[in-house]
């Protein structure tokens, strides 16, 4: 995203920051630049939101290795809340960004000792393991964490990602199902679960994937990725050894998904004469046959 820093007033920046905070976009570079250009001098005006903005800036500054900004903001928060565990966490994060992992873990352990119910430092410890490349340890620790904090969706999703990194798709699918129970209306979670099942392969899994893709499309008919996934699943099933009635049904569904997908792309394309280009591509590749053996 390109933002014109000079034309933005401090309230515009505050609203933009709030939007990023709420939808949890990373945007670290933009946050730091906007902070330096606009908000740093005006932060007193934002009232109670100030602390949230400072926290956001600290994380963004650490993410872009701007330790000067991070230290300044942490100092401000520390003056206001001396001895706060939340501020202590940022000190640990600073050590983490400096790659002094052992001392970071010491600080985090001190926080956990003071407040056993505090989830954030435990998550940071897992992030440190990830940063060190100890993925298996991170998985073990995250499993232990999830035994204590079972309703933490973020952690379930992270565990899913870690399992996928290890190629353990069955376990990843289990984690995603757990997330799905928390938001049954999210088309993206359905789509993700379908993708995991499709990656696992095999007739049974692809049938499950087809079901989840269908549900994702039902929840959001504009989900192009799910439409294409449905097409892939159905064309796999149509060429598989399933019963012939099932194969016919899949063929039909694949046709439908492809039609829907082409309607959506035709409606949203910004390329002029897109259809002509596709037609010429089709004729160019028409004689080509790709076989997978």
């Amino acid at each position: 995203m390109s933002l014109n820093y000079e034309e933005m007033s401090w309230s515009d920046v505050r609203d933009q920051f709030r939007k990023w905070r709420e939808e949890s976009g990373r945007h670290s570079d933009e946050v730091v630049q906007l902070w330096v250009a606009v908000l740093e001098d005006k932060v007193q005006k934002t009232g109670n939101e100030r602390h949230l903005i400072l926290e956001q800036v600290i994380v963004a500054a650490l993410d872009t290795a701007r330790f000067d900004i991070a230290t300044k903001c942490t100092k401000q928060l520390n003056e206001e809340f001396p001895g706060s565990l939340r501020v202590m966490k940022f000190k640990a994060m600073r050590l983490e960004a400096l790659e002094q992992y052992d001392s970071a873990i010491e600080v985090l352990d001190a926080i956990i000792e003071k407040d056993e119910t505090n989830a954030a430092p435990r998550k940071r410890k897992i992030a440190i393991m990830k940063a060190r490349g100890l993925r298996l340890d991170a998985i073990k620790e995250l499993n232990a964490y999830l035994k204590k904090f079972m309703s933490d969706q973020e952690a379930w999703q992270e565990l899913c990602n870690l399992y996928m990194g290890e190629g353990e798709y069955g376990k990843a699918a289990f984690c995603m199902e757990e997330v799905l129970l928390h938001n049954p209306h999210s088309h993206l979670i359905h789509q993700r679960l379908a993708e995991i099942r499709y990656t696992m392969g095999g007739l049974e899994n692809i049938e499950i994937a087809r079901t989840y893709y269908s549900q994702a499309i039902k929840l959001n008919p504009h989900n192009l990725r799910a439409l294409y996934g449905l097409f892939l699943c159905c064309s796999y099933l149509a060429n598989s050894k399933a019963v012939s009635s099932k194969r016919k049904e899949s063929q039909k569904l694949a046709q439908w998904a492809l039609e829907q997908a082409s309607i959506h792309t035709a409606n949203h394309t910004t390329i002029k004469n897109n259809e002509k280009l596709i037609a010429s591509l089709d004729s160019a590749f028409g004689g080509l046959e790709i076989k997978s053996n």
Binding site: S24, R26, A65, A127
Partner: peptide, 9 residues
């Protein structure tokens, strides 16, 4: 798919 509490730097 972005999890702020699991950022690595």
């Amino acid at each position: 798919g972005n999890f702020p509490s699991f950022y690595t730097f």
